[in-house]
C-alpha cells in the first residue's frame, strides 16, 4: 500500500431537496480495489458521481493525486487520470465496439489516430472483446456491453477507476468473468467498486467502505468487517426474536446476527454477517487506514 492516498476526501456533503445523499463523508483510497457496499439509496452512486466530477458536492472537498477538482485546471487534471463506468452507461448502439471506444478515446484527448487505435485495441483486449470489436453494440449481450463500457473506462491507463455496480444484471458466469477483468484492472491502480453484493467484496477487495443513508458506517479491510460479527452469529431452529437480523439458510436452520442468548450455538462469522450488523444502526467506528 502506498503511503500517499490516491483519493483523499473530507466532509463531502450533498443534499437533494431535504434529503442528504451524502452526509459528511470522509475517507481515503489507496492502490488496489476498494469495495463500496451499501443498500439502494445509501449514496453510493452520488459519491461516485462526485468523485467522477459529474456533480459537485455542496460542502467538503477531495483531491485525486493531489489535484483539486474545485478549480477548472484541477478538474481537467483529475479527469485525465480518471476512468469512470457509470451505473447505466449509455452507448451509440449503431457504433461498433471499436468505433464506440474510439469515440470515447477522442473525448479523452487521444487525437493521434494511430496511437488512439493502438490504445483502443489494447483496452478491448484487456476486457477480452477483441473478437467482437467489429460488431455493432446493439448486437452485443448485456455482459459484453458492460465490458465495452469498462474498456472505455480503461482508456489511457487511468490512475483511478470508478465502477458503479458493474456486475448488476449479469448472469453468474458473466459476473465471474467480469470479476476477473476487474481484478486484473486493479493491479497497480486504485479502483473504487460500488456494489451491493458482499460476494464481490469478498472476492476482489483489499478494503471496504460501507455506506448507509449517505454516511460512512465502516471503513477497513474485509477481515475487519467480518470480525465485527465475531461471537454475534448463532443458529436456531426458528428465528430468534432477540436477533437484529436473521434468515433461513439452505440447510433449514435460522442464521441469526445480533446479541446472542447465553446458550446459543455460535457460528463462524462471514462478511455478510459483519455487513448486516454494521448496517443495523451500529455506532460508526471507522477503522484506521
Amino acid at each position: 500500500m502506498t503511503t500517499h492516498p490516491t483519493v483523499s476526501a473530507s466532509g463531502l456533503t450533498l443534499r437533494y431537496g431535504g434529503t442528504a445523499a451524502l452526509d459528511d463523508v470522509s475517507f481515503r483510497l489507496h492502490e488496489g480495489v476498494t469495495g463500496l457496499l451499501g443498500p439502494n439509496g445509501a449514496g453510493k452512486t452520488t459519491l461516485l458521481r462526485v468523485l467522477a466530477t459529474a456533480v459537485p458536492a455542496d460542502r467538503g472537498a477531495f483531491t485525486v493525486l493531489g489535484h483539486d477538482p474545485g478549480t477548472v485546471n484541477g478538474r481537467r487534471e483529475v479527469r485525465r487520470r480518471l476512468g469512470y463506468l457509470p451505473q447505466t452507461p449509455g452507448f451509440h448502439a449503431d457504433f461498433t465496439a471499436f468505433a464506440f471506444v474510439d469515440y470515447v478515446a477522442i473525448l479523452k484527448e487521444l487525437t493521434d489516430r494511430a496511437a488512439r487505435h493502438r490504445e483502443v485495441r489494447r483496452v478491448l483486449e484487456a476486457v477480452d472483446l477483441s473478437d467482437v470489436r467489429g460488431k455493432r453494440i446493439k448486437r452485443l449481450s448485456g455482459g459484453m456491453r458492460q465490458r465495452v463500457a469498462l474498456a472505455a473506462a480503461l482508456l489511457g491507463d487511468p490512475d483511478l477507476l470508478l465502477l458503479d455496480e458493474p456486475t448488476v444484471g449479469l448472469d453468474p458466469e458473466q459476473r465471474m468473468r467480469f470479476r476477473e477483468v476487474i481484478a486484473e484492472a486493479g493491479q497497480g491502480r486504485t479502483v473504487l467498486l460500488s456494489t451491493h453484493q458482499t460476494e464481490d467484496v469478498a472476492m476482489l477487495c483489499r478494503r471496504v467502505i460501507v455506506m448507509a443513508h449517505g454516511r460512512v458506517r465502516f471503513e477497513g479491510t474485509p477481515a475487519e468487517l467480518t470480525a465485527r460479527a465475531a461471537g454475534r452469529v448463532w443458529s436456531s431452529a426458528e428465528r430468534d426474536p432477540q436477533a437484529r437480523a436473521g434468515w433461513r439458510t439452505g440447510l433449514g436452520a435460522f442464521r441469526n446476527v445480533g446479541d446472542p442468548p447465553k446458550d446459543a450455538e455460535l457460528l463462524e462469522p462471514t462478511l455478510e454477517d459483519g455487513y448486516l450488523l454494521v448496517l443495523d444502526g451500529e455506532p460508526v467506528e471507522v477503522a484506521s487506514a
Binding site: 467522477a52 481537467r76 452507461p89 452507448f91 470515447v104 477522442i106
Partner: peptide
C-alpha cells in the same frame, strides 16, 4: 438525446470545444 452524456461530461476534452 445523448446516451453518452455522463461519459462526455467527465471527459477531459474541453466541454466548450465539444
Amino acid at each position: 438525446l445523448d446516451p453518452t452524456y455522463e461519459m462526455a461530461l467527465v471527459a477531459p476534452l474541453h466541454g466548450f470545444r465539444l
